[in-house]
Design a protein around this nucleic acid. Structure first.
Lengths: 343, 343
DNA sequence: GCCCCGCCTGAATGCGCTTTCAGTAAGCGC
DNA sequence: GCGCTTACTGAAAGCGCATTCAGGCGGGGC
């Protein structure tokens, strides 16, 4: 058999001996078609393995059942879990979800938004902090604006600055403050903080919340005690190692992210320190895996799944006035075995 | 400002005072355009926040720079890591990657393939075992066939039965056998196996490889010692718990997947058993996190990233004869602290 | 000075589909 | 039996873009 390209609606119509219009209607059920004709069309379509060309269809006005989710890195459990929530709701609404990773490259983010927009996806969801550079955010905005005006839905999760769209925001600042309080209550007075890139608003908020609470308690946090690393397990490992080689004098390490905390735990173990006997470690997010670590990680539990669900719901809900709807979600400190009282 | 739909090429052309054709050429650089005209077009495009309509463009013949990756669950580190490899190579080739999770639902898989096909994606990659039901596989095949004939590229990772497309296959059987040998060498003679759904070829192969090697060594593996659970952390936890409540008499537990092994580790801990002092535990895949567990997990290390890279390369490489190209990749036993010698 | 050639530009065509719009045949009331 | 409604069906018009085909214009060769 000759390799032949996709069958078109015209092929189907011809095979069934009807017009294009009738074939289209029979296939989509958009208008009544006499049964025997409809059967012939369906039969022919099956025979030819016909799949409508989504491009032609979209071009002709039909709307898409696809929503695009753009995040920094799908393999990061934080994003994966949020995405899970999105998918749950999307599924209930008979929507298909496609994920993309930007690896924190603004250009790539723009590229994905652009193709999603070009494909006229039903909705575009952005997860994760935006970029410091106002130019990028502006570019993103101009990309999104016509999309929204054209009927596209947009929502973001934990990204606030500059984008005027519906948002679900975890209360990073309050969560970090609560964690600080909990750690103070355990008797800790000397802290170290492992952060990701400061340019990410999420990071900035968490550090600020943590620092503010310490300040309020009269406990200092020197700049030397705040180490920046990549927003990954290895970043946490490197930052912790850095701290250790410089001589760690803290009794407690707060990582702004569970993923980084995992790296920190590994670094401490490799240095022969035991947690929490020698040092306490706390994280943020409560990604699923941290319960299975030894010791299980103390962290600020964010309802990650719900973050995604809410965002999807927001995007799906009609918003006639186009007012910006913001949904804040609190985190909760969960004390586990990685932190202990200071004797 | 009136909410107005997307600007079209015609709008740009009019604003720039040139013809459609010229605007198109200026924007795409497909043909020389006099500098001052080109500048006017670019200027107008910027002004109007013009984004070409991907559908119209694709319909008019331009090919897409998108590849679709379909797997069981993106939040599973196995798939996430393979996907990472795919993205690396895709990026080198200036391709954008979109991920989708089927959650092991054949219908959903079909739906994703269908929209990817409809969107005329440059390539479709399937990661993970297929389904037992030959009807589904056949349906998938009829969906894929015209796509391939129409110039689409398809490759699969660790999925072999029935799909006649390029494939990258980890040597599950040999890997499991090697693991059995290693565990036998440690002196173990009584084993338990935690498996996922047997209908998945990956699972079947790993169990078979493990069993064969034991048989060869004259060590029995009773059906009672093989417990099936969901292919997740919780599935591993449940299966292990089941085993424990029934009275575990094995000295070593082999989980067909690291993810399940993590669950098993948790169940053992919750039962007050210590690893490897009381029981040894081994997994399969070597997903990144297992190095950070306590104890670090003994496992069969698969080059997960490379699995993805190879698949993407395969899909990208011309294949004039349309012969099925199969690339097998071996795993390697990595002994870590979760397994110990039997005294 | 004329012709030919090359370089750009614009008009027009078609990609595959949905959707009017107009038309035909059947069905109904009288 | 005629006119009118009802119920489908088919022809045709785009959707937004890339691209082919014909020019138009200027420059170089003779």
């Amino acid at each position: 058999m000759q390799p032949r390209p996709h069958a078109t609606l015209e092929d189907v119509a011809r095979a069934a001996g009807v017009s294009l219009a009738t074939a289209s209607r029979a296939l989509n059920g958009t208008a009544p078609v006499r049964p025997h004709l409809r059967d012939r069309v369906l039969e022919a379509a099956g025979q030819l393995a016909y799949t409508p060309n989504a491009h032609a269809r979209a071009l002709a006005g039909a709307s898409h059942r696809t929503v695009g989710v753009i995040c920094h890195d799908v393999s990061d459990p934080y994003f994966a879990t949020v995405a899970g929530g999105i998918m749950r709701v999307a599924d209930d609404n008979d929507l298909l979800v496609m994920l993309a990773s930007t690896f924190r490259d603004p250009e790539r983010e723009l590229a994905y938004v652009s193709i999603l927009r070009a494909e006229r996806a039903a909705a575009i969801l952005l997860i994760g902090s935006g970029f410091e550079n106002p130019d990028w955010e502006r570019a993103l905005h101009t990309e999104l604006e016509p999309y929204i005006n054209g009927g596209g839905r947009v929502a973001v999760v934990s990204r606030h600055r500059s984008l005027r769209v519906d948002a679900v925001l975890p209360e990073n600042r309050a969560g970090a403050a609560a964690m600080a309080r909990a750690l103070l209550d355990l008797g800790h007075r000397r802290f170290a903080v492992l952060t990701g890139p400061r340019t990410l608003t999420t990071v900035a908020d968490r550090v600020a919340g943590f620092r503010d609470e310490l300040t309020r308690a009269g406990v200092p946090l020197h700049t030397d005690d705040v180490v920046e690393g990549a927003f990954t397990r290895d970043g946490g490992y490197a930052a912790m190692t850095d701290l250790l080689t410089r001589g760690l004098d803290a009794t407690c390490v707060f990582a702004v992210t569970d993923v980084m905390a995992i790296g920190a735990l590994a670094a401490l173990r490799d240095h022969g320190l035991s947690v929490p006997a020698d040092v306490s470690v706390a994280g943020f997010d409560d990604i699923p895996i941290v319960r299975d670590l030894t010791p299980p990680l103390t962290t600020v539990a964010l309802p990650l799944q719900q973050l995604g669900e809410r965002a999807m719901q927001l995007a799906l809900t009609e918003n006639p006035g186009r007012r910006r709807r913001i949904h804040r979600m609190a985190g909760e400190v969960v004390l586990r075995a990685s932190t202990a009282k200071v004797p």
